Amino acid sequence: MVRYVNEGNIFTINGIKCYAHGCNCAGAMGKGIALQFKMKYPKMYRLYKKKCIDGTFTIGDVFEYVTGDEHIYNLGTQKDWKMKADLEAIRKSISTMMELASQGNVKAIAMPKIGAGLGRLDWCDVKAIIEDVALKYSNIELVVVENYKERNTDCQ
């Protein structure tokens, strides 16, 4: 099942401790949500960078990092930060992530709208892939935050 949130921060969604994001395979997490992952999980970043340098994290791959009850899914969606993300790599990495999550008894994963920001793909194309893959995993909820917002600043 996929649930879309118009605005928010994947790290502040109640009840969710597992996260995914699209990555390049060049070892760089210098912008966007990737930079937030780098700052929040520095050990994960060092392992990811080593995998990229060693050539063991390539387009379409998933690097799952587990710390305590958190699972972080680094999805290899683009070769490097200069190139567009790749739709087939997104399909492959999301499929692998969902299989890993199912095996790990993960019930919910929060993620940004991958591939459509710095990855420069059409969000409708990426969204169709996410929904198609998620159909096979009804036991896992994907919560997709479509627009980043640090916190709610609306007066109520």
Rank of each mutant, 00 (worst) to 15 (best):
E141W: 06
V144N: 10
K149W: 07
E146H: 13
E88A: 05
K107I: 01
I129E: 01
D125C: 11
E146A: 12
R91N: 07
L118A: 10
G119M: 14
S138M: 05
A116T: 14
E88L: 09
E99K: 15
L142I: 14
T96C: 12
V145F: 12
G119Q: 10
L135T: 09
V126H: 09
A116Y: 08
Y148V: 11
M98K: 03
K107E: 06
L100H: 14
A89E: 03
Y148I: 14
A108L: 02
V145R: 13
K107P: 04
A101N: 06
V144R: 10
L142P: 12
G119N: 11
L100W: 08
A116R: 14
S95N: 15
S93A: 15
A101C: 12
L100S: 06
M98E: 01
E150V: 11
V143L: 11
A128P: 05
I114M: 11
Y148R: 13
I109F: 03
R151L: 11
V126M: 09
M111V: 06
S102D: 13
V143K: 09
T96H: 05
K127N: 12
K136C: 04
V144K: 08
W123I: 10
N147P: 08
D122H: 13
L121A: 10
R120V: 07
K113S: 14
L121K: 13
A110N: 02
A108N: 00
S138P: 14
Q103F: 00
G117Q: 06
N139E: 07
K113C: 12
K107C: 03
R151C: 11
C124S: 12
I109Y: 00
A110G: 01
M111W: 03
N105M: 03
